[in-house]
Design a protein around this nucleic acid. Structure first.
Lengths: 199, 199
DNA sequence: GCAGTGTTGGCAGAATCTGCCAGGTTGACA
DNA sequence: TGTCAACCTGGCAGATTCTGCCAACACTGC
């Protein structure tokens, strides 16, 4: 059963390890945190850690996927008759919600990511997976005779906008509101950006 | 001296290690290849390997950066008076050159990458760095009063097109020519893709 | 309750990565 | 050409990451 005690215990253990890892990485850095430290903080053995995550780096993906998953799930409840632009902006607003709500922890986390190549790679890979899932979720908004790359390009453009907005926002404290910046980015992407003369 | 014997020996050692690693990864897989194997194939000690690359995964970046670097360097010799579209297509043609010229090794390498999360992360990180370098190289094509995100979004869109084209090409052997597919992707990105109604 | 399945912990061992030092090679100068 | 300083290399010890194995325990379904 998916709602049995065993399953709930596993989810709890997984969540506790991910939270402990995120906290310890922020406190003392990735390399200064051993798997034993994370296991101790989550009150399990180091051997159990590797049963939940293939390697130490992978614990970051449990954190990375969470935010985007909520946003992508939102598309399932939307009708394909709504304009693509509305559902995209609604989804990206959800994706940026945690950024607007508690900016300081997000900034610290992004700085930690930037300074840790081992984690950055996994983070980017998780982003890449979210891009593919988003493309799949957007398929109902495209007709059968549209180009096979179209959903992937739209999904990629959306993820690109979020990525660049966050990148700018993390280092520039004068950026007032990530959401309005995102809106500007989306409208630039919507215009003729490769061949400026040809609309 | 940058042209001394010592420097040339170092470059040769680095190249031999990268080539040996790429060959061994393809032959027997990433995890089945130890650093000792790579060092033996390049005729150095394992200790020396870690003097050239911070970790085993990083040997892949020496291969990843090469292709895009040539393409981006091409922008330095172009005038900012040329249309953005022309220089972008010229650059991306260079970037896809090795794909068109020897497709089979590139396909095998991409499959190996896809099946090896540890390498995929580093590959994506190198792609992300190339994106930033490309955005910087594109700056002359943007006026001072254009949006600060504009070069980054154009660079990101270009890299996105290449990425999705290669992803489709790797698995679908019916794709005739990656270059014409790239052209289609660029024109889709150039159109109103987020808000289809508003050009 | 009881058998069956699945999860956990501990241990041994391989592989990755680092600090350290001794020995050899290279490059600059006389 | 000879000498010295700087650098590169190899080897070793040790910490950490990650895996295979087995026994003990907890949960599930009857």
């Amino acid at each position: 059963m998916t709602s049995g005690l065993t399953e709930r215990n596993k989810q709890r253990t997984r969540r506790e390890m991910a939270e402990a890892a995120g906290r310890l990485f922020l406190e003392r850095g990735y390399h200064a945190t051993t798997v034993q430290d994370i296991a101790d903080a989550a009150d399990v053995s180091a051997r159990t850690f590797f049963r939940y995550f293939p390697c130490k780096e992978d614990v970051i993906t449990a954190i990375a996927s969470a935010s985007m998953d909520d946003a992508i799930d939102l598309l399932g409840g939307r009708s394909a008759k709504e304009p693509l632009g509305s559902v995209l902006t609604a989804m990206l607003t959800v994706a940026l919600a945690s950024v607007s709500e508690n900016p300081d922890p997000v900034r610290a986390f992004q700085h930690m990511l930037r300074d840790t190549p081992a984690l950055r790679g996994r983070w980017l890979e998780e982003q890449r997976k979210s891009r593919d899932r988003l493309a799949e979720a957007l398929r109902p908004w495209f007709s059968d005779d549209s180009h096979p790359l179209a959903p992937h390009l739209v999904a990629g453009a959306a993820m690109l906008a979020v990525d660049e907005v966050i990148t700018l926002w993390v280092d520039d404290r004068s950026v007032p509101d990530p959401l309005s910046l995102l809106d500007e980015a989306l409208h630039i992407l919507n215009g003729p950006l490769i061949f400026p003369g040809q609309p």
